[in-house]
Design a protein around this nucleic acid. Structure first.
Lengths: 321, 321
DNA sequence: TGAATTTAAGTAAGTTGTTACGTAAACTAA
DNA sequence: TTAGTTTACGTAACAACTTACTTAAATTCA
């Protein structure tokens, strides 16, 4: 019995079930002691009928929080034992209105005082915990309804992944990863130009030795994202080649890379940070905007890439918390 | 759904059941999302096996807090799906030791991180309520185990009856009740002597007009107990004829009557209170002792009843809170 | 008005337990 | 050693639901 007590949510689930069974059983026992040989699960039906005259199957089910077949089956049983009967609703022939028989009323009358006693006993039990139990159950019900366990786990997982991401500088041993990530990205959205191949295959000579930077996102030993700051003739840096591996997208890793790149830029003597992108890459544009980049017309001296149709620049002192 | 929320303990029972079902379903959902098509109810078994190598059916059942047929059935299913296998215990041929297959271990490994995430999620959920939920459940479990619902209801009922008892003085209209109660009592323990009949039939002339008192215990309009203080030649009062109707015994009504009688005696000028009883009426003797009566030898002037073999007297200033 | 949809309720079959009972191995005590 | 008891486990039957499906009446809407 003990090993399971700390077995997480499932343990809690079966504990609730146990407790529920215990309560039903003890109620059965109580009623049996009063000479009433009827399962306690039937009583809510009788109780509701005693105060409502007639109720249809479906609305009874709704009141009890059960499915209609459950009520249908239970009512059939109760009917065969003579506690209730049914009649068709004259205004809606589909409906079967349930009502107590005289014996049913007699039974309810007999049980009324027991119900009152039971109510008091329960209140005393709950009083011990300052009614905290009821509140806590309601809270758990609400929380699980608001966001399912699965959603919670997935969110937590995402969070964990995000937390485990490190942003590091390029190292020779990650050259292949840098190529792979960029190729994946270009294959997906555009196509690989020969110039791309040249740059991606020789990142050290083509980017770093020209005064640029390459940042990588690492989880454990896996490289799962990259970004580059490239230096051209001007005194400005270009942010480019931001890409994140397919399975890790949507976790905010791109943002992390971009922020790291901005920090890197701010630590240098370069006097401007710009990027070129494409209007169809909406999520990326949103991110750039969020980070402070603003659209500008293409400067005259820049020869636009074939795939670039938007130019953005980070204003001086742009926010980047 | 709402009408049942305040339907007492049964409502609480089905609420627990609901909550338990919700949890199981959400767990199923979570595992399914991970590509594991196995009901969440199976996992505790796998989890336990993954840390214990082999476990017998019965001890597994005990650990899970379920019956052994449940484990037997579940394990058969899991075995047919290839997650576990069994072998006979060589030291006890009755026992079937369950263990994980390689696939089973693989599955557990795969799920390990999910379990950890789930654990965290649950802890966060419970944190909201300051872990009050767990404490409150444990409290309810303990309380219901300590004293069942039935016992609680019966105790409360007893209490209610006791509270509703009034002790009143004799009135003419209750003469029959006085006779009935005493006759019942005498019939049960001894026999009705002709002298008894004389006294019981004419309580006013035989008891009250001689300076004595008759007290009655009344619930609503029912007289369910009686006691008499009779005055003989001496300056003492005799406490006698304490009797309580069969269905109301054990509720402390006799004590209430006796205390009222002592109070009545103390309000008079009589200078002694004694009683005669029989050694076989042990509960009554205990009560008398509790109220302060102490055994004395029969005084010379008193002619003992046939059925009296013990004489008790209330010392001056005897306790009677 | 006639077709499509919604609603009320029943039936069948499945799930996840339970209790009740039977069997055989292991233990215990005269 | 034998007889009685306990223990481990399986099977069958049942309980109290559920889901999935069907039927038929009522309602809606084009």
């Amino acid at each position: 019995m003990h090993s399971i007590e700390n077995a997480g949510l499932l343990g809690l689930g079966s504990r609730f079930k146990k407790l529920s069974e215990l309560i039903f059983k003890q109620c059965d026992d109580l009623y049996r002691a009063r000479g009433v040989n009827l399962q306690s699960r039937c009583f809510p039906i009788l109780q509701l009928l005693s105060t409502h005259e007639t109720i249809s199957v479906t609305s009874l089910a709704e009141m009890l929080g059960q499915t209609h077949p459950a009520v249908s089956q239970m009512s059939k049983k109760l009917e065969s034992q003579g506690w209730l009967y049914h009649e068709a609703d004259s205004s809606d022939e589909r409906r079967r209105l349930l009502a107590l028989t005289p014996q049913g009323y007699e039974l309810v009358d007999k049980l009324q005082p027991v119900w009152r006693l039971q109510e008091t006993v329960m209140n005393r039990l709950l009083e011990i915990s300052g009614y905290g139990l009821l509140e806590n159950i309601a809270l758990l019900e609400r929380e699980l309804e608001k966001q399912s366990l699965r959603e919670r786990v997935e969110e937590l997982e995402k969070q964990n992944k995000q937390d485990r991401v490190e942003i590091i500088h390029f190292e020779k041993r990650y050259a292949k990863d840098f190529y792979r990530l960029n190729k994946e990205w270009l294959d997906k959205y555009f196509y690989l130009e020969s110039m791309d191949h040249e740059v991606l295959s020789n990142p050290e000579s083509q980017i770093i030795e020209k005064g640029g930077f390459i940042l990588l996102a690492r989880i454990g030993e896996d490289i799962i994202g990259a970004a580059a700051l490239t230096s051209n003739q001007s005194n400005q840096l270009e942010l480019s080649k931001i890409c994140v591996e397919a399975g890790y997208q949507g976790l905010g890793i791109g943002e992390k890379l971009a922020r790291a790149a901005i920090n890197q830029y701010q630590a240098t003597d370069f006097s401007g940070l710009y990027l070129e992108s494409n209007r169809k890459l909406l999520p990326a544009l949103n991110l750039y905007f969020k980070l402070g980049f603003r659209e500008k017309p293409f400067p005259a001296q820049i020869v636009p890439h074939a795939r670039a149709d938007i130019y953005m620049e980070l204003p001086e002192q742009a926010s980047s918390r």
